[in-house]
């Protein structure tokens, strides 16, 4: 029974790691925001599986909602593509 939980934890953490890696190495800032929102969603599975529903509520509201809203606002004020 515990194997199913550990498998879900593994897949969720791998998704979060993959999303955050893609968010860092992305040139187009809007896609980086979308990937950071995806990373927030993936990590909310972790908090959910570790039996912390209140943390899930707070983390989703911040990582998927307010954080991406602020970053989209910042990107709309500054340039959109990151020149390297």
């Amino acid at each position: 029974m515990i194997m199913v939980h550990l498998l879900m934890l593994l897949v969720a953490s791998l998704l979060g790691l993959f999303f955050s890696y893609m968010a860092i190495t992305e040139k187009d800032l809007l896609k980086a925001i979308a990937y950071s929102a995806g990373q927030g969603v993936a990590y909310s599975i972790l908090f959910y599986l570790l039996m912390a529903p209140d943390v899930v509520l707070a983390y989703i509201a911040i990582a998927v909602g307010i954080y991406s809203a602020l970053l989209v606002f910042v990107v709309s004020k500054t340039t959109r593509y990151e020149e390297d």
Partner: peptide, 12 residues
């Protein structure tokens, strides 16, 4: 948490 997740994804 399911309701909150659905609503915030819509706002994104």
């Amino acid at each position: 948490s399911a309701i909150i997740l659905a609503l915030w994804a819509y706002l994104l």
